[in-house]
Design a protein around this nucleic acid. Sequence first.
DNA 1: GCCGTTTTCGGCCCGACTGTTTTCAGTCG
Length: 581
Amino acid sequence: MRRNEEVALLLDNIAELLMLKNENPYRIRAYTTAAQNIRALDEDIEELARQGKLDEIPGVGKAIAAKIEEYLRTGRLEYYEQLKREVPLQAVDLLEVPGIGPARAHLLYEQLGITTIQDLLQAAQEHKLRKLPGFGEKLEERIAREAARLMQRSKRLLLGIALPVAEEVVAALRPHAAIRAIDPAGSLRRMKETIGDIDILVASDDPPAVVDAFVHLPFVKEVLAVGPTRPSILTREDLQVDLRVVRPHEYGSALLYFTGSKEHNIALRSFVQERGWKLSEYGLFDETGKLLASETEHEIYALLGMDWIPPELRENRGEIEAAREHRLPILVEQRDIRGDLHVHTDWSDGHEPLERMCEAARARGYEYLVISDHSPSLTVARGLSIERLREQRERIRELNERLAPFRILQGAEVNILSDGTLDYPDEILAELDLVIVSVHSAFDMPQERMTERVIRALANPHVDILGHPTGRLLTSRLPYEIDLDAVLDAAAHYGVAIEVNGQPDRLDLPDIWVQRAINRGILIACTSDAHSTRQLDNMRWSVATARRGWAEPRHVLNTRSLEELRTWLATHHRGAPAHRT
DNA sequence: GCCGTTTTCGGCCCGACTGTTTTCAGTCG
């Protein structure tokens, strides 16, 4: 399999250990940059190593190339082992405590032997920290507070939870007379799958009025800070929302800055700096310090000779070069989606009847809807027997007459059994309009077997879409062990589409892999995996994830009309027929 | 540790805040 991720992880670990040693920050950055570029790489790193081309990877020079080569050849890296002997790896946890960075972490484990957050809390409570050089009473108190909070912290927020809360705040404030512009910023605006903080940016000439309105919103449970331009509240759902108020003429540069990502900002500013100019949250300035632009993001990018970069792409994965060369993708939008391809009803584990799901899909302007209830072996989800599947088909036929020209297709989400065979026989699969195959059982298989299992399923000529390919659940389950590169190669070979499942805790395929799938010519299926009419809205998160993977409408299967979809279904699979007579 | 149409050395994004100091290091976003 490809070992790019493995190598990237190694380099990230080295960077963290170097941080704990309080090493030169630029040396640390060299490792994280190299790791990032290796993750974004389309080629196999082992292949590059064989060809002696490792130092052609941006950010990889002689030293890092030699380390990668040693690791790939021997399976270990002496330099890394050495570092681990010098610095306890678990002490990297200390860096998560707000107020503790490389220097203080170094001091803590070096002077007091502290390596865990629990140790840290105890030492703070025993007033051992205030004696350290550069520490004092206040810092000790803060660290105690933050460490205690971290030990009972909630995980990162799902995009699908955080963005609706942010939008509620935005909608409540927007009509206010003092507010000229307001947007969610940060990872929320970039539609990242999980969010650290909810940040909202406001343009106003009267910051105090805005702050006052914000802290008095009806759903505010607690006011955490009331700075003149940076108030912070806790909503009744216990989510922290930070507001920042800036002057209208600085809104563009502030929005650019607060949207990030950090990596995008650094790369953009390096580019600016090479021209002798300067970019900050206050604007773009020339060599004499004269303000060139600050009011809108568009102006700033334009002065740099770039197209405006959609926030979803601002991850320093090639978007800056693409913007300069005017070859940014025209990203897929929700309004491009003509139908949903993965929906459950109360025939299996959905919560609402077939009729209501279809009517709701039609009401939101779709041309078609694929009903894809579970197959029999998923008993917990009341998977459909062959008889019930045929019974459902009759109901769909009746509904199609009533709801025309809206069209319901009968599909199924068919389990990939542990040997890679499917949960309905081929003649039943042949009767279905669309077949999604997914892994729902036997998750903890060795990687090789899991990979073979899924690839075998893709070879079945009745298969149209591979569902949630990694199986991850963002809050609760790691992806199963699978060689996704091999799976994508197989999907490309057979002409099978790959799902981007829109359930907020799935978002599976993940964004980086969407890009890799597209580069292989694989079609993406944006789906809601709705189990209720409300969850049809999950399509939004699927489209957002596809956008983060640089997907254009032409890369997405369900931007096609019903007729185009049918043509594709009839012709796309390049495998041999399953049974011949 | 990387990198180079001003460079193989001397840079590496920028500004604000906090708390510890007494002019600044460390952290954060």
